[in-house]
Structures are given as C-alpha cells and as structure tokens.
C-alpha cells in the first residue's frame, strides 16, 4: 500500500508543481512565458560553469575507486567499525557515500545481490545511503559555481554531519532490525 502511495506521489509531484506555479502566475497576471524563458537563460551558464569542478572531483574519485584502494582502507579500519556494531561489509559503502552517490549506490546494489536487501547488511546500507549526501561533490560544485576558493569550515561541518548520520544509521539499524 505504502509503496503505491509513494509511487503516486512521485508520479504526480512534478506535473502538479508545474501546473500550480504556472496557474498561480497567470492568476497573478505574470507574463508566464516571458518570465520562464528569462529565468531559463541562467541554466546554460550555470551548467557550463560547474564543468571544471565536476571534472576534477569525478576524475579523482574515479581513480581512487578503480584502483581498489577502498578494500585496503576498509581492512585497515575494520577493527574500529566492528567495535561500534557495523559489519565490515558495509564499510566500503560508508566511505564511498560522501564521495560519490553513484558509487555508493553501486556498492549498495552489490550488497543487495550478495546478502539480500532484507539482511542486516542490506538494511544498514539502505539506511546509510538514504540519510546522508555526497558532501565532496556538493561542496566542489556549489562553491565552484560561484568561484569560492576558501570554503572555511563548510567541509568540516559537512563531514561531522556525515559521521553523525553514519553512527546514527548503524545504531538505529541494530536497534530496529538487529
């Protein structure tokens, strides 16, 4: 039941938002077509401006991933994660999560195939993936788009939040499903 409600929400959300905004605009006597195209102009410059930052991040993350460094790093910190109740199988995903959304989803799907989505490993990976975002990617692209070079404490705050979300995911998954 809940799944079908969720599916319906994602099915109708965009059409209803588009309908709502344009109708509201017409009611308020906005020249909707002209306003739309005026705003849309910004899309091109912004998308082109983020290319260098996206390239830098994706290349570095891609090289790190492809080299298999993740597995060595996971082995290195395994004693630490075992102590907090995180199965070592989930660790590569936890490390990948702040770096790359696609990479983390790939690892999660691998865990689903190997252990099943309803195993403790599968559930923990799901909760973790659903509760944090790709910190490095967001920072690089958002700051890059306005040429900010000194991010001050943004990365520290973002990584602290990631760490907290990670620990919370481990604890809550063990409590609910353990």
């Amino acid at each position: 039941m809940f799944v079908s409600v969720m599916n319906n929400i994602s099915l109708y959300a965009i059409p209803l938002i588009l309908l709502g905004i344009t109708t509201y605009g017409v009611v308020k006597k906005v020249k909707v077509y002209e306003a739309f195209t005026e705003g849309a102009k910004e899309g091109f410059t912004t998308a082109v401006r983020i290319i260098p930052f996206l390239t830098a991040m994706l290349v570095a993350i891609g090289v790190f991933r492809a080299s298999g460094s993740m597995d060595y790093f996971a082995k290195l910190v395994a004693p630490l994660t075992n102590a907090i109740g995180m199965p070592s199988e989930v660790l590569p995903m936890a490390i990948m999560r702040p770096l790359s959304g696609g990479g983390a989803s790939g690892i999660m799907n691998g865990l689903f195939t190997e252990y099943g989505p309803d195993s403790l490993v599968g559930r923990m990976a799901s909760v973790m993936n659903g509760s944090t975002d790709t910190t490095f990617y967001v920072l690089a692209v958002y700051f890059g788009s306005v040429s900010i070079k000194k991010g001050r404490y943004a990365l520290t705050a973002g990584l602290l939040a990631d760490l907290a979300g990670l620990l919370a995911a481990v604890i809550i998954t063990n409590m609910v499903f353990g």
């Binding site: 938002i17 344009t22 509201y24 705003g39 849309a40 899309g43 091109f44 998308a47 290319i51 390239t55």
Partner: peptide, 30 residues
C-alpha cells in the same frame, strides 16, 4: 572516462536547470 562523464553530466544538466530556473522565475514574479 570520468572526465568525459563530468562534461556529459554538466551539459545534461542544462535542460533541467533551464526548466526549474524558468519555473522559479515565474513563481518569483507571481
């Protein structure tokens, strides 16, 4: 591969960016 992907991603974003920024302008003016 990732250098190529970065450009494809950014350029692929142009359409979506234009759509939502256009809608936002309408919502703003209203």
């Amino acid at each position: 591969d990732n250098a190529k992907t970065a450009v494809e991603l950014s350029l692929g974003l142009i359409g979506v960016m234009a759509l939502w920024l256009g809608m936002m302008r309408v919502a703003e003016e209203a």
